[in-house]
Design a protein around this nucleic acid. Structure first.
Length: 915
DNA sequence: CCAGACTTTT
């Protein structure tokens, strides 16, 4: 008997006093809650035929258990009334526990049943399967088979077939099905079809399906879902046609299987047709169907439809909420997603692991560092990290995206299980935070783990890291590996390779690779356009853009960022302005801050500083740091102190953290010798706790990338490097090199200045290159910051003395560069962003030019620098009258500085050597 | 009393 306390708690309605059995039953049904029912059945045992009534009453009792504790009370009741040994009731009890999700209690109950029948076993088996405890289900099956002496029936196989973990188990089970003669059972056969298709053996599945004498809807669904889950949309739709021609109607399950492949096959028409069918047949009421619809529309990016389906749902479950949140999150609307998440919580839905995955992504899109810690804590408290790798990967990714790369690393180390995606996330994280050498290091660690097999995502994250530091050799090794498995033809991987070759100055290789990868999407186009832009081939960029339009590829916002940057670097002001117009009017793209920044850069770099300022004033959105930064950069190029200091005031209002801008401003003052202003800016930066980003240069020698910082004395070959530099400097001086101390932004003695210039990172790297590579081979240097003008000069001399081609591309002064396609997810959304470094790329800098070859100079160099360079080139080659340099823009045919209009500053000079 | 087929994932 339940204890008296409990009995007192239960207040029976007055109708219970009635002893008549039918009224008693009505009462139980009306109050379908266990405790009154238990009490009633104990206090008022039903009359009439015992056996008949006993069953019915217990059925109601079982039905009324909706919580585990009630099931336990019922269990107790069965024990006290001596019914626990009843095979029928105890089997129901096993089921009850299983239905309530307590598999271990079900197992306990199961174990306590002395004589089990096949129903009992089947119940236990299906309980294991339903809760994903597949190993135990299969073990249980073999136990039944070998130890119980019972014969499995047709109910036994479907759960076991679902539970089997690999094809070997599956084939063994298939043998048992045949041996025991169950292959003609519709359910068993459908389960076999499903199992084979799950392991990708679609031919066997199809064969079995064709041989089925009777097919019910479930069998058709098993076959269709088999094809769907293998991404085989065409076959799935064929089966659907067959099914409909046999007069079988689609049910919610069919629809829910088919909808995801519509998104996969990129076929919105079929998807909408199915939606019509759903509406017509009223299948919307099924949560699975509506959820699948939401997901499909989300994948097509049609958020309006997704939202409408969601709003019209009468019953929403956790999956519905997860789906709609993920829909907004994946379509770059984190704020709406967050709003929905809050609403979901208010309505009392408990977030699950997948909600947390979306949440992590939302937080990283909002780049909200504070919340990222909250999300982490939220997940730790629920012990989800041990449950699933996915969530761990998501959080590693989140920390990396909000810039907390150290937290990302720490968490990565702590993950109980790591898969290839975990590694990819960390590599991508380092790469996106500009820490390319760390990314490479992690990649090498990953290669040491034999069990982790790199995939597309790995290549897409490591290749940009290689191109970041200019590790062409290592990148090419990867290229070799990719050729073996044909992955280099993958759009994203191929694009990364194009980017690598392009960034490393191998534009020809980049182009030939570009023509091999599929180019129906804008992704590879953006990369190749950007690469040409970086190297100042403005005309080539325009050609490529036209070609892109001819081939019917729709340019996206990234295309225009690359295009505008390219115009800016090649001084194509009018073209740039035209593209800005085309983008809005013809392509319907609303310009983002990046586009505005590029436009300011375009105008400013060309010397139209007032126009650039007016442009900023007329912007419909609030200008951010990148826009003011572009203006400041332009002021530095053109030495406009006044506008520069104005721009920097605005700049520090929106971003006072980026040390690069302080450096820019102090350079502006230093160039005009306003040292006290320089000091002021420096102390301002110091007071705000900012440290100058150390400039580095890197060089790849023997598959290893060496990075040098200015004044670096820790390199193993340090002594030789400085020795070489001394020799070089002496020879340079004899050839007329005069160190330009204006680039030393410190007020020190001249010989100290000379030493500072000599130990600039770039020169250390070059010297190291000269002593470590065979004579005459090309030296490729990579830098993170802008080159200093003196190094730029010195490099030309060194190139001539050492008879080496020296290539030095470099980046923005802010050291900020959004690097290419990092991370699959991003690339899928064509975020193939390669903001062009504002480069000064010369080929060959020393003027060693073969007939027909051309030189290119672009970027930060002022027209006079360019002119000087070109003259040097001509002199260096002992130019004759019939040697001439053809200029693409701005500079007249001969190098007569008098004819140059200083307002029309050329930014690309290409020269041709005609002997 | 027990069975199959279906939606969300970094």
């Amino acid at each position: 008997m339940p204890d008296s306390n409990q009995a007192n708690l239960i207040r029976l309605p007055p109708a219970c006093k009635c002893r008549h059995i039918s009224k008693f039953r009505l009462l139980l049904q009306a109050h379908c809650s266990l405790l009154p029912a238990v009490n009633s059945s104990l206090q008022f045992p039903p009359e009439g035929s015992e056996n008949e009534n006993k069953d019915i009453d217990f059925k109601i009792l079982f039905l009324s258990c909706s919580k585990v504790y009630r099931a336990k009370q019922l269990h107790a009741l069965l024990m006290v009334s001596g019914r626990a040994q009843d095979i029928f009731l105890s089997t129901r009890l096993v089921n009850l526990y299983a239905n309530l999700g307590d598999v271990s209690f079900a197992r306990n109950t199961f174990d306590q049943i002395p004589k089990k029948n096949i129903f009992t076993w089947n119940s236990m088996l299906s309980a294991y399967t339903r809760f994903g405890r597949f190993r135990e289900a299969v073990n249980c099956f073999y136990h039944l088979l070998l130890a119980s002496g019972l014969r499995p029936d047709s109910y036994t196989f479907p759960p076991v077939l679902k539970a089997c973990g690999n094809i070997v188990d599956g084939e063994k089970l298939h043998c048992w099905v045949l041996k025991l003669g169950f292959e003609w059972d519709v359910f068993v056969a459908a389960s076999l079809v499903h199992m084979y298709s799950r392991f990708g053996f679609l031919c066997i599945a199809r064969q079995l399906f064709n041989n089925m004498p009777v097919r019910d809807l479930g069998s058709w669904n098993a076959m269709i879902s088999g094809f769907c889950q293998n991404g085989n949309a065409a076959e799935a739709l064929d089966v659907l046609d067959e099914m409909r021609s046999e007069g079988v109607k689609m049910d919610p399950v069919t629809v829910a299987s088919l909808l995801p492949v519509c998104a996969l096959a990129d076929d919105i028409v079929i998807g909408m047709l199915i939606h019509l069918y759903v509406v017509k047949h009223g299948l919307e009421a099924d949560v699975f169907v509506s959820n699948a619809l939401i997901n499909m529309y989300a994948k097509f990016g049609i958020l309006g439809h997704a939202r409408r389906v969601f709003e019209q749902m009468e019953v929403r479950d956790l999956v519905s909420w997860n789906s709609i949140i993920a829909a907004y999150e994946q379509n770059d609307d984190p704020n709406t997603a967050l709003g929905l998440f809050k609403k979901m919580q208010l309505l009392g839905f408990r977030p699950d692991l997948l909600t947390a995955v979306s949440l992590a992504s939302i937080v990283s899109q909002l780049s909200d560092r504070q919340s990222s810690r909250c999300v982490h804590g939220f997940i730790v408290r629920r012990h989800w990290f041990v449950e699933d790798v996915v969530i761990g990967n998501a959080v590693v990714d989140m920390y990396a995206k909000v810039g907390a790369i150290d937290s990302s690393r720490t968490l990565f180390e702590e993950l109980p299980v790591k898969d290839v995606i975990s590694w990819n996330s960390l590599i991508t994280g380092y790469a996106q935070n500009g820490l390319a050498s760390e990314a490479i290091e992690v990649y090498q660690m990953m290669e040491e783990h034999r069990e982790i097999i790199p995939n597309q995502g790995t290549w897409v994250s490591i290749l940009p890291a290689y191109s970041h530091v200019g590790a062409l050799q290592q990148g090419m090794r990867i290229h070799g590996r990719l050729i073996k498995n044909c992955l280099y033809l993958d759009v994203f991987v191929g694009t990364c390779l194009v980017d690598l070759y392009g960034k490393c100055g191998r534009l020809d290789d980049a182009m030939s690779l570009f023509y091999q990868v599929p180019r129906t999407s804008s992704v590879p186009w953006n990369a190749i356009i950007s690469c040409h832009g970086i190297h100042g081939h403005g005309d080539q960029t325009l050609k490529l853009f036209n070609q892109m339009l001819d081939e019917g590829v729709k340019p996206d916002h990234v295309t225009f960022v690359s295009l505008l940057a390219a115009c800016s670097h090649s001084g194509l002001v009018d073209e740039g302005q035209r593209f800005f117009y085309v983008m809005q009017e013809k392509c319907g793209i609303t310009p983002s801050l990046k586009h505005y920044g590029s436009m300011v850069d375009l105008l400013g770099r060309a010397g139209r500083l007032e126009m650039a300022y007016d442009f900023i004033k007329n912007m419909p959105i609030q200008p951010d740091a990148s826009v003011w930064g572009a203006l400041l950069g332009a002021c530095r190029i053109h030495g406009n102190v006044e506008l520069g200091s104005f721009a920097s005031d605005r700049l520090f209002e929106v971003d006072s953290e980026n040390v690069g801008y302080y450096v820019l401003l102090s350079n502006i003052y230093a160039n005009v010798g306003k040292w006290e202003r320089v000091d002021k800016v420096r102390s301002l930066a110091r007071d705000r706790g900012l440290k100058k980003t150390p400039g580095w240069s890197s060089i790849e020698v023997n598959n290893k990338v060496d990075v040098f910082y200015t004044g670096n004395q820790t390199h193993p070959k340090c002594v030789e490097i400085y020795k070489e530099l001394k020799v070089l400097t002496a020879r340079m001086k004899s050839l007329g090199y005069i160190p330009d101390y204006s680039f030393v932004l410190q007020d020190v003695e001249d010989d100290e200045k000379e030493h500072i210039l000599m130990s600039h990172s770039e020169r250390l790297a070059i010297a190291f290159g000269i002593i470590s590579t065979p004579p005459k081979s090309t030296i490729r240097i990579f830098k993170n910051l802008r080159v200093c003008g003196d190094c730029h000069e010195a490099t030309k001399f060194i190139s001539r003395i050492a008879e080496r081609e020296i290539i030095v591309p470099h980046e923005d002064e802010t050291g900020k560069q959004v690097r290419g396609a990092v991370g699959i997810k991003n690339t899928c959304k064509s975020h193939f962003q390669t903001t062009a470094p504002k480069s000064c790329y010369m080929r060959p800098p020393g003027g060693i030019l073969a007939p027909g070859e051309s030189i290119i100079a672009t970027g930060n160099s002022t027209s006079l620098e360019l002119l000087y360079f070109a003259q040097q080139f001509v002199r260096g080659r002992q130019a004759r009258r019939n040697h001439y340099v053809r200029c693409t823009r701005g500079i007249p045919e001969s190098f007569d500085s008098q004819k140059i209009n200083p307002n029309q500053r050329p930014h690309a000079v290409s020269g041709e050597f005609r002997g």
